[in-house]
Write a protein that binds this DNA or RNA. Sequence first.
DNA 1: CGTAAGTTTGACTTACATCAAGTTTTGTGG
DNA 2: CCACAAAACTTGATGTAAGTCAAACTTACG
Lengths: 221, 221
Amino acid sequence: MHAFCVSNSAALPADGVLAVSRVRLRKGETLVRAGEAFAALYAVRSGTCKSVLVTPDGQEQIVDCHIAGDIVGTDGIATGEHDCAIAALEDSELCVLPFDHLEALARASNEFQRNLHALLSREIRRERKTMLILGTMRAEQRLAAFLLDLADRYAARGYSATEVVLRMTREDIGRHLGMKLETVSRLFSRFDQEGLIRVHGREVKLVDRDALHQLVQSATQ
Amino acid sequence: MHAFCVSNSAALPADGVLAVSRVRLRKGETLVRAGEAFAALYAVRSGTCKSVLVTPDGQEQIVDCHIAGDIVGTDGIATGEHDCAIAALEDSELCVLPFDHLEALARASNEFQRNLHALLSREIRRERKTMLILGTMRAEQRLAAFLLDLADRYAARGYSATEVVLRMTREDIGRHLGMKLETVSRLFSRFDQEGLIRVHGREVKLVDRDALHQLVQSATQ
DNA sequence: CGTAAGTTTGACTTACATCAAGTTTTGTGG
DNA sequence: CCACAAAACTTGATGTAAGTCAAACTTACG
């Protein structure tokens, strides 16, 4: 519940009020499937999950990758059915936040309400940023943006801003950034050669964050 | 307020309760700019608007295009500042929905609250669908998906499901779908030749919706 | 009515995809 | 703990969808 509780700690003795239950997922397991009934949001406690949207013809878009502190499942509120699947990229633990409880708390507390709304709005902003990345950037810029975003999110949770361990395969990264796994692999190799990062399999060290930033912001032409 | 009020009509005599004010925008005018303080959502009453996100280097992503009945401005809730600009594509009129009023109403009514949350969640879903389009589809599929979505939205409001008048330029469409205006133009011409649509400038008639649907769902390779 | 903005179309270039082969890592059962 | 199969990754050669540059045409508007 981090992102949520932390920012709510004054108004929300959440674990108590919410009578939170937990779910454990093993690597590869699915928390929710597209079409399943919506009843709760989930807070990632530990591990990493992905939200996946699938086309009728089986193409997958990895909409986002979630780490400890993130809240997932917001797509279900609209219709009472999830349309995104959520799956664990490694063994993970999540808190179940029954949505009617959240709504009751939001009616009772202005501050809790505002935090709930801010949570949903942040999701909207985050997705718009991803749309910007997909719509305007070249492959190398997308990958640089992805690495910086991931590192920043770890940093915001007290971990290193320069060393990240990817939980996604090259293929998953490709399915998130709209490119093929070969392109992801080639770019990792090139960034390594150019001294922007240091890659050992899934371990990536951001050697030159400034250069990565510049790359992201360089005109795409 | 359509989308919102219509679905809320039972619980929400909105115009009365909200003491709604109106804004008129001339074609090209901006309702909010990135960085401006957030105070309200806006319901499109008539006309068409776009939400635009800009990169540091000036590249634009048109995040969405809004028609009568849509609610805009949700990105501002998160931080109290908008990060998306909103501009009119033609002369338009919008209702101002002060957000603290909406929150007060949501605390008072379960039904209103649920509708507000559904509104935000629908936005999340809609953006994820756009991410899917940008991340997995080729240019022709993206354009077909765009046309079908627009026509469906007009149809849901009682207009024709086969005749749409585009308010965006080819360049704007390109900036929404992640392609160049020349590509948009070429695809319009090709779709016309192939009998999928009939184009006269900004007027587009969807001649063969089934074929367009099939095109969207054909494997991208 | 004239100028600017928007659009179309063609010729050429390029970023990324595809196909293919070989290497490394991971995970599982003996 | 090793063996070995499957999954993941890397790298090269080649193909292609879409971008770029350029010029002419059309539409909108002050």
